[in-house]
Design a protein around this nucleic acid. Structure first.
Lengths: 157, 157
DNA sequence: TATTGTTATACTCTATAACTATA
DNA sequence: TATAGTTATAGAGTATAACAATA
């Protein structure tokens, strides 16, 4: 070869491809929630409240959000009428965070919107390929989680 | 089942999985470059300068970076001795940005570090699966690019 | 002394607009 | 008038530390 090998842009690497596709997914999801007046972070938190009432610290542990950020998110959700805070009777330092009926309805709508956005994002792939992609990404994510086990968080009353 | 359908966390959706895996990849790549005193943005810009000299505006078009951000990145690269700026003779408004010998060496090292980081990230997957993942992600990305065609940028002197 | 939630602060990123010099 | 590069500035987002209440 007359020198100058084909230029290898880091943009072509699989790792960077992941980042670029995520860069498409993030705004797509945020856009999908705009009509509901919600953002993905709020919806994520609602998702963890769907089955059980948790303290703010426990919500932080599950979502990976900072506790100062969690204060802001819950302020927003409370103002929207999607969640409530009340002091725990067993440990008065803690707040029991509950999702409201409104919050559950909003979460259901949000899930539909997000699934539609995902549908659009994954449209170039056939169903079997989407399943493949899901499996491959799950394996990558699970492998990383195996290293850093999270301490089990219990529900509060 | 006694009501209460299985809770469907948005964290389990493929779209969100992409975001989470990207959330692992970004810091992994940044960490890989720390020993070289570089970040991914700088390396990306270097990658586009590898074959040809470009104006800042053309670099912006290719990388998608804002022109004010590009100023900062090139300030950094210039200070590191990895790139140079000089006024174009054909159009004195433009700067011809060139990668230096040092810059090429740094880019080569950075590429190795990034490939190793990617290797680690993709380790849970067999080679054939990595190729699959690459193909699937490429299809998603290419499909999105097909909508917004970029105007061809020419090299400068 | 440690933990829960809160507030205040600082720091980074990004986006916008305004300015200059050239065309 | 429009473009290339630069600078200044404001906003959002994030991270840190300090604080009050409770354990």
């Amino acid at each position: 070869m007359t020198s100058r090998a084909r230029i290898e842009h880091m943009d072509d690497h699989t790792g960077y491809l992941i980042i670029k596709v995520a860069g498409m997914a993030v705004p797509a999801f945020e856009r999908a929630l705009v009509p509901l007046g919600l953002n993905t972070r709020q919806v994520r938190v609602l998702g963890f409240l769907h089955g059980e009432s948790l303290s703010q610290a426990e919500l932080c542990a599950r979502t990976g959000l900072d506790r100062t950020t969690m204060v802001a998110v819950l302020d927003e959700l409370e103002q929207l009428g999607h969640a409530t805070r009340e002091r725990s009777k067993s440990d008065r330092r803690k707040h029991v965070v509950r999702i409201t009926r409104n919050g559950k309805a909003a979460y259901a709508k949000a899930t539909k919107k997000l699934l539609r956005a995902q549908e659009e994002l994954l449209q170039p792939l056939a169903p079997a390929e989407r399943a493949q992609l899901h499996t491959l990404l799950s394996r990558l994510f699970d492998a990383s989680q195996a290293c850093a086990p999270e301490p089990a968080a219990e529900a509060v009353s």
